[in-house]
Amino acid sequence: MRIKKWAVIALFCGIFLTGCSKQTASKEASNSSNKSSQSSKSSVKKTSKASSSSAKAVKLDAAKLTPQESGSLITLYCADRFGGEWSNLLQAGQNGSLTITLHKTSDYEFKQPGSGYAYEAAASGQTGTTYYTLSGSTFYFYQGVKVAGSGSFLGQATKQEMADYIVKKGQLAEFKQLAKKVEIVDKSGQTQRLSEGRSGYFTIPAEIQGTWYSASNYDGETTHSKYVFGQSTIFIQDDKYDTKGTTTTLYTRLSDFKMPLPPTEKQMDRVKGWGLGHLYQQDGLNYMNVMGWYQTAGSGTSFAVHTENIAGNNVQILVCASGARPWVDGIAYRSQAMAEKMQDQHFDDLHYRDDE
């Protein structure tokens, strides 16, 4: 059969057009694939940039840290870099709290005395052996420090170097948590060249600090007392026996101190107004005990903050106790009005001397 010329032409054109159509589709598919690939590469680049940006965002700006955050930073850095006493300090801080106390560097003999201050890092209520000084932008670290001593020099670093270090170690969460537990105390105006076996000032727990009032009936008369607790001092006054009030300054004692037995009258006069403070737990209460500096008999006086439910409200009270157990002698309150209202009130969960 003969095929007409126009049919051949039409057939040829059809094949050609079909081929063109396939090539066009192939090119479009190829272009689409290339665009997809380029889009994917672009996405990877963007993700990479985002990741890089995220990494940069983690940077800790040391210049913007608060004093508490700086104390946390230094403790974490030194514990990881040097271990030893700094590591023990970190553990104590994580389980409780830390106190950074400022002293005069002139009271010490550090290798790098720094510019004005010696910073004592210690578990709250304790005397520290870990210190640091600052000169310009560089911190110098020590351990094994005694009052008026030098200790062992460990190393040095700038605050930004320490910040970069803990970020690299992934310790930001620990840093933030520890910073909440740091207290700053300035004792740079007080001399640290202590005598008679004193190793430093005893820090009264924060929950006890402040003013408390009590009212008790003795021989048919009500006696009002006031207790004022500072960082290391206790002022006690009443309106019957000690109207002017008495102040006691609390210290910690050197472990190798040999107490004079018996102390001379001159020695007793020299330590008048000094107290030895320490913390202990008894009957579920966290007590602070105070004894005379040369006291060898008796158990001293103990104080603890406790919460009682009074008229449907949780109220903090100050338990004042003495003796070996110890036994409760009285209760103080944050206001004079509450003390008057609750005069000589006994609480069932406390152990009073007249209960025995």
Rank of each mutant, 00 (worst) to 15 (best):
S37L: 13
N34P: 10
V290W: 09
S214Q: 02
G144M: 09
T247P: 09
L178S: 14
G292S: 02
D186S: 11
T133V: 04
G144K: 02
A57R: 12
R193V: 13
Q177Y: 08
Y77L: 00
V145T: 04
E308L: 12
D354M: 09
A206V: 04
Q316M: 03
I15P: 10
G210Q: 00
T127V: 14
A337E: 10
C20F: 11
Q267T: 02
K41I: 03
P113G: 09
R253Q: 15
A118Y: 12
G128D: 01
E265V: 03
Q316T: 04
Q143C: 02
G136P: 04
L350C: 05
S225R: 09
Q177S: 15
H351A: 14
I317Y: 02
K181E: 09
Q171I: 06
G275D: 00
T105E: 13
K46R: 06
T301M: 14
S152A: 15
T233W: 07
K240S: 10
T133F: 03
T130W: 00
S199H: 00
D329S: 15
D164N: 13
D186W: 09
H306W: 14
Y241P: 10
T222H: 09
K22R: 13
T223D: 10
F229I: 05
L178P: 10
Q192G: 13
S199T: 06
A173F: 02
N314R: 08
K272H: 03
E120Q: 12
I236T: 11
S302E: 13
T264H: 02
P113D: 11
G125V: 01
L285A: 10
Q282G: 05
Q156W: 08
Y140K: 07
S33V: 12
